[in-house]
Design a protein around this nucleic acid. Structure first.
Lengths: 111, 111
DNA sequence: TATAATGCATAGCTATTCTATGTATTTTAA
DNA sequence: TTAAAATACATAGAATAGCTATGCATTATA
């Protein structure tokens, strides 16, 4: 399943693309934003987030730039790429198809 | 994520419980039924299905009984248990919560 | 001044799903 | 009638994802 409908193995990549497409963000901010917006539902771990971000950057869907605050603090901001936006549209469609399929199983029109 | 919201790691177990709760089935039939009802979307592989069924049986959510057809053909039918039904209700609620959370990210009320 | 929060990162574990097989029987089509 | 396709169950091995646990460093708070 995973190869053909990546949604099943997790929605992490999609969620990250959605979020970063709305606004460039850095890792820690992503964790907090996902938690805030989902009203506490999503609590990403670093061990989930950072490898995912690196994976998405390596795939050319995101790109990152280090930014230095006046305080000297370093932050790594992630931006979505054109390719990332195209994939995002695809993933959104796939998600809808997946929901339809699940509903056909869970609430069958015919048994 | 996987430990707290199993849905993310895949919906295989939920789909199987839903299906078998509606009607006891054997493995091959499950593969065909999932494909038919989802209009071709779900195409479970044996390597996905059978380990999953064994897993669910071991967890006490399903139980199986061999049945012999007049032709002599053997089929292993799976039935949902009481525990399986309870877990099914839980999973359905979790799935709804997950959908709500995803929508809050994908279509944010506030950005 | 200790603790919590911010900020990035990786190593190792476990679980899940896939691919690729294997075996055997029954039905269908050439 | 016989080859091929469908039916039916099963597992080994590989890939991958997400988790736990940990490390380091800085800044804000109690």
């Amino acid at each position: 399943m995973a190869k053909r409908h990546e949604l099943m193995k997790g929605s992490v990549d999609s969620l990250l693309l959605h979020l970063i497409a709305q606004q460039p963000m850095y890792g820690y901010q992503i964790i907090k934003e996902l938690e805030r917006r989902s009203q506490g539902y999503f609590k990403f771990r670093e061990g989930t987030l950072y490898p995912a971000l690196h994976r998405l950057e390596k795939a050319g869907l995101l790109l990152s730039r280090w930014q230095t605050l006046p305080s000297g603090q370093q932050r790594r901001y992630y931006y979505i790429t054109d390719k990332g936006n195209r994939v995002l549209v695809e993933k959104r469609n796939q998600w809808q198809e997946f929901l339809v399929a699940v509903n056909l199983i869970v609430q069958p029109a015919d048994a």
